[in-house]
């Protein structure tokens, strides 16, 4: 008590360091500084470069909207937008369904609940790593167990990474397999649902399916919204697996937008053009997120 009073009197005197706001800023400084240096400045620079002809280690030359008008005609870029959207549309719902399913299985209070959650979370921890990509490359490769199994079923000449039709499948599965963080968020959401709702529904004779669609889903909808947005964003930015496993191929079937940007900027030395692509990608992501937010009032349910 004494100490607290003393503190307050000091701050009244207006000492700069004792000011509560200053303390707040001090603790927030690491984030603010790194946000400015590692996010804001690069973003501003990339916006500038997107209007330039820019090669790393050379002087940028202003070209106005040329990069953007070139993009409109660029078939490879159009294709990468298309395959990225395909990846997101198939991959994100799959991952969310997976996460919700496992989260529901793990809400049953058992002794090993904590252990199971940890185990299912591990793939997400090692998620974006090169090592996992290499493992999946082996697993679905031409001599991997999955292809061997499919061939044993009598399918001739089957190959995941050699076919434009199937190359995306292992990448989507690899992404869905890393459902841990969504699962944890779903699990905590499931815990928040009051037990009496289910009991009341049970007394009224509702089946398990009815209970799921009438109680669980509506109450969980704000959390679904959150997970959906997070996964959409990370889906649009998918890079490592495509680069390691398929190198964007075959015939650009998995040439996702982030990979295409990387190729343009680093391999072909057209950083300005790559920056323009990343801004288009940002706009598309912002638009989709915006639409989901706008429509969310129709399908999310807030108890209070």
């Amino acid at each position: 008590m004494q100490a607290a009073k003393a503190g307050r009197s000091v701050s009244r005197r207006g000492s700069f360091l004792q000011n509560e706001n200053v303390v707040g800023y001090f603790f927030a400084a690491p984030f603010i500084l790194s946000f400015l240096c590692l996010t804001m400045i690069p973003m501003a620079l990339s916006l500038y470069y997107s209007f330039c002809n820019y090669k790393i280690a050379a002087e940028p030359v202003w070209v106005g909207l040329k990069n953007f008008s070139d993009l409109m005609k660029d078939a490879t870029f159009g294709n990468s937008l298309l395959v990225t959207i395909q990846y997101v549309i198939i991959g994100v719902p799959l991952k969310l369904v997976f996460a919700l399913l496992v989260a529901m299985l793990l809400t049953k209070p058992t002794r090993l609940q904590g252990f199971y959650r940890a185990v299912y979370y591990i793939p997400s921890l090692i998620g974006g790593s090169v090592a996992v990509a290499l493992v999946w490359k082996q697993l679905f490769g031409s001599r991997g167990p999955v292809v061997t199994f499919i061939k044993a079923l009598g399918v001739k000449n089957f190959s995941f990474f050699g076919s434009t039709m199937w190359a995306f499948a292992p990448l989507v599965l690899c992404n869905a397999w890393q459902f841990g963080s969504s699962m944890l968020i779903f699990a905590s959401g499931l815990k928040q649902i009051p037990k009496d709702y289910y009991e009341a529904a049970e007394i009224d004779g509702a089946s398990t399916v009815q209970r799921f669609f009438s109680i669980t889903l509506p109450i969980l909808s704000p959390i679904i919204l959150f997970n959906l947005i997070m996964q959409l964003i990370s889906g649009f930015m998918t890079f490592t697996q495509a680069q390691i496993i398929t190198d964007g191929g075959p015939n650009y079937a998995t040439n996702y937008i982030a990979l295409n940007i990387f190729k343009e900027g680093f391999s072909y030395q057209r950083m300005g053009y790559a920056c323009a692509q990343s801004w288009i990608m940002l706009l598309i992501m912002a638009a989709i997120t915006g639409i989901i937010f706008k429509t969310s009032s129709h399908w999310t349910f807030y108890e209070n």
Partner: peptide
């Protein structure tokens, strides 16, 4: 004809 490996196999070897 399968006499040369498809691009998937070639990409795996890299």
């Amino acid at each position: 004809e399968g006499a040369i490996a498809d691009y998937g196999i070639q990409n795996e070897i890299g």
